[in-house]
Amino acid sequence: MRELVESPVFLVALTLAAYRLGCWVRDVTRGHALAQPVLVAIVVTGAAILALDVDAAVYADGVQVISFWLGAATVALAVPLHRQASRLRGFVVPMLVAVPLGVVTSVVSVVLLARWTGADEELARTLSPKAATTPVSIALSGTVGGIPSLTAVLTIAVGVLGAVAGPAVLSLARITDRRARGLALGGVSHGIGASRALAEDQTEGAFAGLSMGLTALTTSLLLPLLLVLLL
């Protein structure tokens, strides 16, 4: 029995079933903000591996095939962007200004908040790359002296929170331009936010995917300099 529950086939099937359940919950609730498939999948899968006493490292090794295809799925976000390429007219300059400002705001605010609340420098460095997509944030965390595993958890948590609350916050702020909404969701919530944006609108999803990539690139370039200035 132990060999079965720790086998890659079972763990992959469990993960896919949990995500499919999340999609069903989203459809049944007519797209309720809390019914995000990724959030439901995390809760169900986490509860299952805890109940089955499966070690987290064993689970991670067993679902590497999913992690591999996530890279391809991220690249595939370029497809809707290509279809919406005409919408880039008049938006390139604002976008190239907004993305670096967003990265600076994200890093500076989280580092200052961490130090203000008494966190040590290592935790501040761990938190600093949270706006980048998970693989990039993990690599950056190790480079700047953070704790990569903790960075991964925080990055995913930020992504889920942004996907759940982001559209409502943008609506409250009366931001209706689909390009701007996508740029904000992709910059804050990376892949999970881009997925939510695609469910909302094709243009919004395309710009969320673009923002995710630009934010990861800009964070990689600016993070070391910002940490030198702040820490």
Rank of each mutant, 00 (worst) to 15 (best):
A48L: 09
D201M: 10
A73I: 06
T134E: 03
A60K: 15
L50F: 01
L150V: 14
R89Q: 15
T203Y: 03
L229H: 00
A131F: 07
R89M: 12
G102P: 00
A114V: 11
M212S: 01
D201G: 13
A206K: 03
L77E: 06
R125W: 10
P94H: 13
E204H: 05
V108W: 03
I66S: 08
A165C: 11
L123C: 11
A18K: 00
L170E: 08
L185K: 05
P100H: 09
L50R: 09
T126S: 00
L96Y: 08
V28I: 14
V43N: 00
R115H: 12
G71N: 15
V160Y: 04
I192H: 08
G193A: 03
A124N: 03
S171K: 12
E3I: 00
Q64M: 14
V65E: 13
L52K: 05
A47W: 07
V58G: 05
L81C: 09
A85D: 01
L4R: 00
A208M: 10
V104M: 11
L221R: 00
L210G: 05
L101T: 10
A72F: 15
R83N: 13
R179W: 02
A98C: 14
W69G: 03
L52I: 01
V12Q: 04
E122K: 12
A72L: 14
V28E: 12
L52P: 02
L229A: 14
G193D: 08
P94E: 14
T117I: 15
L210F: 07
L210T: 02
L223D: 04
G146I: 01
A163I: 01
G146K: 00
P167Q: 09
D201R: 10
A51W: 03
L226Q: 03
A119Y: 12
A35K: 05
E200C: 12
G62H: 06
V144H: 03
L70P: 07
V79R: 13
E122V: 15
A152W: 00
L221V: 03
V144F: 02
L101H: 09
V188L: 08
M1T: 11
I138E: 04
T74I: 12
V79S: 11
D120T: 12
S220R: 03
A98S: 15
V110H: 09
S195H: 04
G191C: 07
V12I: 02
P37A: 08
T203K: 07
V97E: 09
M212E: 02
R178K: 08
V103C: 11
L77H: 07
R30E: 05
G46F: 01
C23P: 00
A41P: 01
D120Q: 13
A47C: 10
T105I: 14
F10G: 02
V79C: 11
S86I: 13
A114R: 00
D53F: 02
G162Y: 04
P135R: 01
F91S: 13
L127N: 06
L101M: 14
F68I: 13
P167I: 10
V58C: 12
V54R: 00
G159C: 06
A184P: 00
H32I: 14
L231N: 10
T203C: 15
G90R: 14
G166D: 08
L140V: 10
L222W: 09
L88S: 13
L154F: 02
A60F: 15
V5M: 01
T74L: 08
Y19T: 05
V136P: 06
